[in-house]
Simulated scan of single mutants.
Amino acid sequence: MSTAGYALTDSVTMLRRNLKRMLRYPSMTLMLIGLPVVFLLLFVYVFGGTLGDGLGAPTGGRAAYVDYVAPAIILMTVTAAVQGTAISVAMDMTEGIVARFRTMAIARVSVLTGHVIGSLIQTFLGLAVVIGIAVAVGFRPTAGVGGWFAAVGLLAAVTFALVWLSVALGLVSKSVETASNLPMPLTLLPFLSSGFVPTASMPAGLRWFAEYQPFTPVIEALRGLLTGAPVGADLPIALGWCAVIALGGYLWARRLYNRPAR
């Protein structure tokens, strides 16, 4: 078997290991999905009526706001799910299993590949649940088949980028507790974007930050794709941010993983 064949076989084995861990600890998956669901229900049923009236939409109220906020909650599902990736990687590093893997005749790349692909699967399962709940509370996307394919592709790109960043955060963490805290800014950034209120309503300094941080073009592109509205420059900007974050996270993770053991 060729080197690439061994790497693929070992990666499948590591993926199976991570999927079994996901099934063995369902509480972690439920916790990561539960956070965006709680925020969805909070913003729709507590703040939705007032915030929806301020959007300037023809209908206004809660019905308008659930369509506005759903893309931000969908992105929060991704940021919450990848937090589990950092925790899983840190568990492997601190419990010594990675040191054991390094003594075995397996492809080094397979360990991280298993984490990345497993996290992608877990995240999309979470996205399916959250989108289903969003539809149940009134979210009404009007996208056609092409729009849905484009939205899924964008979510895959965002997830892939943030997973690699979270892998690096897990590798750099000295403990599982640290790994659970380092990705927290990823969960908070959607609040400082156009996800929950239009940036035009923000003070000047905060508005500048909200308009130029990575999550705003992602949310705006996702919102446009799901509602059939023009996405303009938001989609290429969002994909550009995904490429930068993915490349930076991958190179950082590879450097951390290949450093000599202490």
Rank of each mutant, 00 (worst) to 15 (best):
25 Y>V: 15
162 L>I: 10
117 I>M: 11
93 M>D: 08
33 I>Y: 08
179 A>Q: 06
35 L>W: 13
16 R>G: 15
70 A>I: 04
68 Y>T: 00
109 V>T: 15
241 W>L: 03
169 L>G: 08
111 V>L: 12
96 G>P: 05
215 F>E: 03
39 F>D: 01
162 L>E: 06
153 G>C: 10
261 A>K: 08
92 D>L: 05
200 A>Y: 12
67 D>C: 02
226 L>R: 03
255 R>K: 13
79 T>M: 01
62 R>F: 00
142 T>M: 11
89 V>G: 01
153 G>N: 06
39 F>Y: 13
229 A>F: 08
206 L>W: 13
116 V>Y: 12
93 M>I: 09
171 L>I: 07
208 W>E: 12
218 V>H: 03
259 R>T: 11
32 L>T: 14
251 L>W: 07
69 V>F: 02
190 P>Y: 04
185 P>G: 08
123 T>C: 10
138 G>R: 03
19 L>V: 15
240 G>Y: 00
81 A>F: 00
109 V>C: 13
83 Q>S: 15
167 V>L: 04
258 N>W: 10
123 T>K: 04
175 S>C: 08
192 L>N: 04
134 A>G: 10
146 G>D: 07
102 R>M: 09
113 T>N: 12
168 A>F: 13
213 Q>F: 06
243 A>V: 12
37 V>A: 14
226 L>F: 08
90 A>V: 05
31 M>G: 14
90 A>N: 06
249 G>A: 01
128 A>V: 14
90 A>H: 02
15 L>Q: 05
141 P>T: 04
65 Y>D: 00
29 T>N: 11
80 A>P: 01
125 L>T: 13
127 L>A: 07
133 I>P: 03
54 G>C: 04
121 I>L: 15
145 V>W: 14
42 L>N: 07
36 P>Y: 04
118 G>A: 06
261 A>C: 04
107 A>T: 07
140 R>P: 06
250 Y>M: 15
257 Y>K: 05
116 V>R: 08
246 A>K: 05
96 G>F: 05
197 V>N: 02
26 P>W: 05
154 L>K: 01
111 V>P: 09
126 G>K: 05
69 V>C: 01
128 A>P: 09
145 V>S: 13
78 V>A: 01
31 M>L: 15
62 R>W: 00
150 A>T: 11
174 K>I: 10
59 T>V: 15
62 R>H: 01
66 V>I: 06
106 I>M: 14
2 S>R: 09
180 S>W: 08
68 Y>G: 00
12 V>G: 05
262 R>P: 15
165 L>W: 10
67 D>W: 00
76 M>L: 14
17 R>W: 13
244 V>E: 01
14 M>N: 10
163 V>K: 03
130 V>I: 12
186 L>E: 05
164 W>M: 14
44 V>L: 00
114 G>S: 07
110 S>H: 07
172 V>L: 12
24 R>C: 05
60 G>Y: 00
73 I>K: 00
72 A>E: 00
179 A>S: 09
109 V>K: 13
124 F>S: 09
224 G>M: 02
198 P>F: 06
66 V>S: 00
56 G>M: 01
203 P>A: 09
223 R>K: 09
245 I>T: 02
50 T>V: 13
157 A>Q: 06
151 A>E: 00
148 W>M: 11
197 V>S: 08
135 V>H: 10
251 L>R: 11
69 V>I: 11
253 A>M: 04
143 A>Y: 04
192 L>S: 04
